[in-house]
Design a protein around this nucleic acid. Structure first.
Lengths: 211, 211
DNA sequence: GCTATAGCAATACGCTTGACTTGCAAATCG
DNA sequence: CGATTTGCAAGTCAAGCGTATTGCTATAGC
C-alpha cells in the first residue's frame, strides 16, 4: 500500500476550518471551495475525505458537540473536593456562555447549526438529543441542593433545570448580538442563581417530599 | 399617468411570501425566484418593487418587527381596567412565545433574521435596537410591582427584565426545536413569574433602598 | 524493480443564483 | 386621440455552486 494518513485527523482539520467559516458567515456561507481554502487544501482533497457536503456538516457537528460536552465534563470534574451543587451548576453555565473569544466562536457555530436545525429534520434530531441529558444533570444538582436545604423544596428540580438552560441560551443570544457585554450575562446568571439558592433553612423535617 | 398600484401594499405581499419561505427554509433558502413564485408573481415584477435582494430583506424585517410590536402593544392596551404589572408582563411574554402556528411561523422568521444578524452588521443593528425599549418597559413593570409590594425590593428591575427577556428567548429556542411542547414553555414562564412575584408583604417601611 | 493503489490535484459539467436589459401592454392626461 | 409613462414579463449574463471524472505521483508490498 502507498502512503497512509490519519483520515479522522484530516477530517477534524477540515471541520475546524468549517467552524471558522460558519462562525463568521454561517453554514450557508460555507461553500466546499471556501472550506478547502480555509483549511489550506484543494477542493479535491476535501472531497476525498467527505463524499458530500452534508456528510461534512454532520461530522463537524458531531465533532464540536463532542468537544463541548467533554469540556464541560472536564471542568466539573476538575472541581476540588466534593463541590456544592451550586458550584457545579455555575461552572457548567460559565462554560456555556460566550465569555471569551474561543467560546464565542463555538457559540456562533452552534447558532449556525441551530438555524439549520430549525428547518432540517436531521440536524434538528441531533440538536435535540443533548438537551434531556443536560436537563437531567442540572435537575439532579438542584435536587441535591434541595436535600441540602439550599433550595426551597417547593421548587421542581426539572423545571428549575430547564429554566437555567433556557436562561443561558437566551443570554447567549443577546451576548452574541452585542446587546450587552458577555460579562453582563454572567452577572445575570449569578443573580438568578442567587434567587434560586436563597432558601434560608437548616435541613428541616420536610424531607418527605417525593412524587 | 397609467395604471397606479399601491407600491407598499405590493411590497407587503412580497414580504409575506418571503416570511413563508424564510420560516420553512431560512433566509438563505429564499431565492428571488422562489419568493416570486410563492407570491404568485413573476421575477420581473418582484424586481420592479425591490431593486436588490437585500432591500427586500430589510423591508420585510421592518415590516414584521413593526407588526410584532403593534400586536404586543394592542394586546397590553386591550387589558381591562388598570391591569396589574404581573398581568402586563405575562401578556407580553405570551405574545412572544410560539404558542400557536402563526406565532411559531413568526418566531421562525425571527430566527432566520437572527442567524443573519449574527454575521451581518446591518441586520444586527436592526436586531439590537428593539431590545432596550422592551427591557425598559419590562423594568418599569417590575419597578411598579416593587412599589406595590408584590416583588422583593432587593430585586433590580432592569436585571429582572433582562432575565425575563432571555428566558422567553431561550424557551422559544427549545420550543422551536421541538424539545418540548410550546405549552411547556408557558408553564415554565409562569413558574418563573411565580418566583419573581413571591414577595409576601404589605408595602412596609423598607422603601429607602436606593443605590 | 515492478505493480497495485492511496492520496490528491485539476478540470469539467449541469444548475442555480442575483442582477441587468429589453420591450411591450395598458392606462392616464393633455 | 395620441403621447407618455407606469407596470411588468421574458430573456440574458457571468459568477458560483455541489458533484463527478480523470489521471498523475509517490509509496508499500511482493
Amino acid at each position: 500500500m502507498p502512503k497512509r494518513v490519519d483520515h479522522d485527523e484530516r477530517r477534524r482539520q477540515i471541520s475546524e476550518a468549517l467552524w471558522r467559516i460558519a462562525a463568521t458567515r454561517g453554514l450557508d456561507g460555507a461553500s466546499l471551495r471556501d472550506v478547502a481554502a480555509e483549511a489550506g487544501i484543494s477542493l479535491g482533497r476535501l472531497q476525498h475525505y467527505f463524499t458530500s457536503k452534508d456528510e461534512m456538516f454532520v461530522f463537524a457537528l458531531d465533532y464540536i458537540s463532542g468537544l463541548a460536552e467533554r469540556r464541560i465534563r472536564e471542568r466539573v470534574q476538575a472541581l476540588p473536593g466534593t463541590p456544592a451543587p451550586r458550584d457545579i451548576l455555575r461552572h457548567c453555565l460559565v462554560e456555556m456562555l460566550p465569555l471569551d473569544d474561543e467560546s464565542r466562536a463555538g457559540n456562533l457555530v452552534q447558532v449556525a447549526y441551530y438555524a439549520r436545525a430549525v428547518h432540517d429534520a436531521r440536524t434538528r434530531r441531533h440538536a435535540q438529543e443533548g438537551v434531556p441529558a443536560l436537563r437531567d444533570f442540572f435537575a439532579a444538582q438542584v435536587r441535591h441542593a434541595v436535600e441540602r436545604g439550599e433550595v426551597d423544596p417547593e421548587r421542581v428540580p426539572e423545571d428549575e433545570a430547564m429554566l437555567l438552560l433556557a436562561l443561558a441560551d437566551g443570554l447567549t443570544s443577546f451576548a452574541l448580538l452585542d446587546v450587552y457585554a458577555p460579562a453582563e450575562a454572567l452577572r445575570l446568571i449569578d443573580r438568578h442563581l442567587a434567587g434560586l439558592f436563597s432558601y434560608n433553612s437548616s435541613p428541616r423535617s420536610s424531607g418527605s417530599k417525593r412524587s
